[in-house]
């Protein structure tokens, strides 16, 4: 749905994107992760034709994006990081305006904006947008991004201004949008990504690292961790003595498969008949993956 090839972009002599390659498959929910200032917003603006890339190509639905008035934008809905609307309008008026400039028919606009206001929880709101809180603006932002039923929905940190309940609601909206739409969203909140994303990319030094399907990424780059729980102090002592690479925190021993072979541990436990409460293999979390990638 979205393919970025070899994209370069500098501001002055600061190179923000340095040969970025990104592939977002259709009907995926794509988490775009990176530190502050890593270039997430820059990438998104380039996809929308709002920024001119130094070199490289961006394709939306197989069509090339051009700077300025990109015709590809008719497939795209965009929620900026800090959405700003005409403050003198009310939410329904703004949605009507958005519908009109995308060329929707009046009956479509009426139906769609009613649905969307309901969906984002702004249907009772009759005030002008000027008095909206940041969270309300973000909700309206999602509604306006979805008004023309886009094939690609680009959200720049859609949950950053929201309370936990609002965050869950928005994530649910993004999930439900997936049936008709490919969603790409940037965030710092890895638990959000873990919760709804099917695919991820981690932006670092202007390139995409650890890109692909979440479970692929985890199995490819993640190193399995094991933990052993016990209330018996002797077990802890014996294991630490035999396997010094293990770490011990509050009655819980953990080790990585790369450091200690799990079968050796199991054999040792059964040989010495050490009392243990639980032996568990822990799924690698995105957080641990990204911390590792970041520190590389």
């Amino acid at each position: 749905m979205l393919r970025i090839t070899d994209l370069y972009k500098s501001f002055g002599n600061v190179r923000v994107l340095d040969g970025l390659d990104l592939h977002v498959p259709e009907h995926s929910i794509f988490g775009f992760i990176g530190k502050n200032g890593s270039g997430k917003t820059t990438t998104m603006k380039t996809v929308l034709g709002l920024l001119k890339a130094d070199s490289g190509t961006v394709e939306v639905a197989g069509e090339k994006v051009v700077y300025g008035n990109s015709p590809t934008n008719r497939h795209v809905g965009y929620l900026p990081d800090v959405p700003e609307f005409y403050s003198f309008m009310t939410a329904p008026e703004y949605l009507r305006f958005c519908g009109e400039i995308t060329g929707m028919t009046n009956t479509d606009i009426k139906k769609r904006s009613g649905e969307l206001l309901e969906l984002v929880g702004l249907s009772g709101e009759r005030h002008r947008i000027g008095g909206f809180s940041r969270g309300m603006k973000q909700r309206l932002g999602i509604a306006q991004a979805l008004i023309n039923s886009p094939r690609l929905l680009i959200c720049d940190e859609p949950t950053s201004a929201l309370d936990p309940v609002g965050r869950k609601e928005i994530l649910d909206i993004l999930t439900s949008a997936r049936e008709k739409t490919t969603v790409i969203f940037s965030t710092h909140i890895l638990s959000d990504v873990e919760r709804i994303c099917t695919d991820v990319a981690f932006l670092k030094d202007g390139k995409a690292e650890l890109q692909g399907n979440i479970s692929d990424v985890k199995s490819r780059y993640g190193i399995d961790e094991y933990s052993i729980e016990t209330d018996c102090g002797d077990t802890v002592r014996a294991l630490l003595e035999r396997f010094p690479a293990m770490t011990h925190i509050r009655g819980k021993l953990s080790f990585r498969e790369s450091d200690v072979c799990v079968f050796d541990v199991l054999a040792y436990i059964s040989e010495k008949r050490l009392p243990t409460a639980k032996i568990e293999r822990c799924e690698p979390t995105l957080e641990s993956l990204f911390m590792e990638a970041e520190s590389k």
Partner: peptide, 8 residues
């Protein structure tokens, strides 16, 4: 920005 990304 929003109006323009809507294809105006």
């Amino acid at each position: 920005l929003l109006s323009l990304t809507k294809g105006l």
